[in-house]
Design a protein around this nucleic acid. Structure first.
Lengths: 162, 162
DNA sequence: ACAAGATAGTTTGATGTCAAAATATTTGAT
DNA sequence: ATCAAATATTTTGACATCAAACTATCTTGT
C-alpha cells in the first residue's frame, strides 16, 4: 500500500462504510449527481441480471407504449438522446422482434416505430422491474421526493439543450 | 409528422419550452436523476469545447492532485469506477505526459501514478472550468444545495456497492 | 519448498453516448 | 424545372462504462 493510500484510509470524518469522497468533490453537486445516477443505474441493471432483459430497452419500449408510431427523430427528442444513438438500439429491438418499422408513405426518408405484441410483453416485464427500483428509490428519498424531483427538473430546465 | 407526434405536441400541461417527459417517467426519481446528470455533464463538456481539455481527465487528475501516488486500483476505488475503465484513461494521460507511472519495488505487479508538472497545470486549468460549472449548478439549486447533496449521498449509501 | 489461491493490471466484448460526415429525400426559391 | 438548402436516418470515430477472462506476481498453508 502506498503512503497516499494510507492517507486515504485515515481521512478524518470518513470511516470504512463511507465511500471515499475526495475533498475537492465533497461539495460539488455535479459529482454527487453523477455518482448517484451511476449507482441507481447499476442497481437497476443488477435487477435484470438473471433475466434476458436489457436496461437500455426500457426507456424506448416505454415511450413507444405511450406514443406508438413515433419516428426515430421524435423518439430521440422524447428520450433526450441523440438520433444516432438510437440507430443501434432500434436495430437490436427490431432484430428481436420487439418493434417494427413502418415506412412513411409521405416521406421515403422516414418511418414510424411500433411495438409488436412481443414488444408490449417485454415492456410490461421491464416495467415491473422498473417499478420495483422506483419503490426502492422512493423509500430512500422519502418525503423529500417532490423537492428532489423539482430541483432536478430545475437543473434540466436551466442547462438543458442550450 | 405522425399522429402520435401530434399527440406529443399537444400534451396538456406541457409547452414547447418544457422537455417532453413521458407520463410514465414523470414521477420517477431515476429518470430525473439520469436526465439531470446528463445535462450537467453535457454542459461541462460544452465548456471545454474550444479547448484541448477533455472532461474525462478532470476527476483522475484532481484525485491525483489530492492523493499523489495512488495505484490504479486505489484510484479506481476513489473515483468509483471499475479498474478496467481506468486503463485506457491512464494510458492517454501517460501518452500526453500528464502522469507518470512509478514501479512499486515491493510488488512488481503494481505501480503508483503521479502527476507531472504538466499534469498539475492541466488539472488547474480543468479545475477552473469545473468551478465555473459548479457555480452554475449552485446558482440553479440555490438554498436547497445541502439538502440535495444529502439526498444524493443517501441514495449512494443505500444502493452503492451493495 | 511448493502448490493453491489471492491480487494487480490489462485485454476483450457488449453497451451506450455524442458529434461530424455521408446518403437519400423532400422542400423551397428562382 | 432545376438547383440549393433543409431534413431524416445511418455510419463512423472517439470515449466511457462494466464484467469476465487472462497474465503475471505475490501470499499462504502445508
Amino acid at each position: 500500500m502506498t503512503s497516499a493510500a494510507k492517507a486515504v484510509e485515515e481521512l478524518p470524518g470518513q470511516n470504512e462504510t463511507d465511500s471515499l469522497i475526495p475533498a475537492a468533490f465533497r461539495d460539488v453537486i455535479g459529482y454527487h449527481l453523477r455518482v448517484a445516477q451511476e449507482v441507481s443505474f447499476q442497481a437497476f441493471s443488477a435487477m435484470l441480471e438473471k433475466t434476458d432483459l436489457k436496461p437500455g430497452w426500457y426507456s424506448i419500449l416505454t415511450i413507444l407504449a405511450e406514443y406508438d408510431g413515433l419516428t426515430p427523430s421524435e423518439l430521440s427528442k422524447v428520450c433526450g438522446r441523440d438520433r444516432s444513438t438510437l440507430t443501434s438500439t432500434l436495430k437490436g429491438l427490431s432484430i428481436r422482434g420487439l418493434i417494427e418499422r413502418r415506412q412513411n408513405p409521405d416521406d421515403q426518408r422516414s418511418y414510424s416505430v411500433r411495438l409488436t405484441d412481443e414488444g408490449r410483453k417485454m415492456q410490461a416485464r421491464l416495467h415491473a422491474f422498473a417499478q420495483e427500483h422506483d419503490r426502492r428509490l422512493d423509500a430512500i428519498v422519502g418525503e423529500d421526493k417532490e423537492a428532489l424531483v423539482a430541483i432536478l427538473a430545475r437543473i434540466v430546465g436551466a442547462l438543458g439543450k442550450g
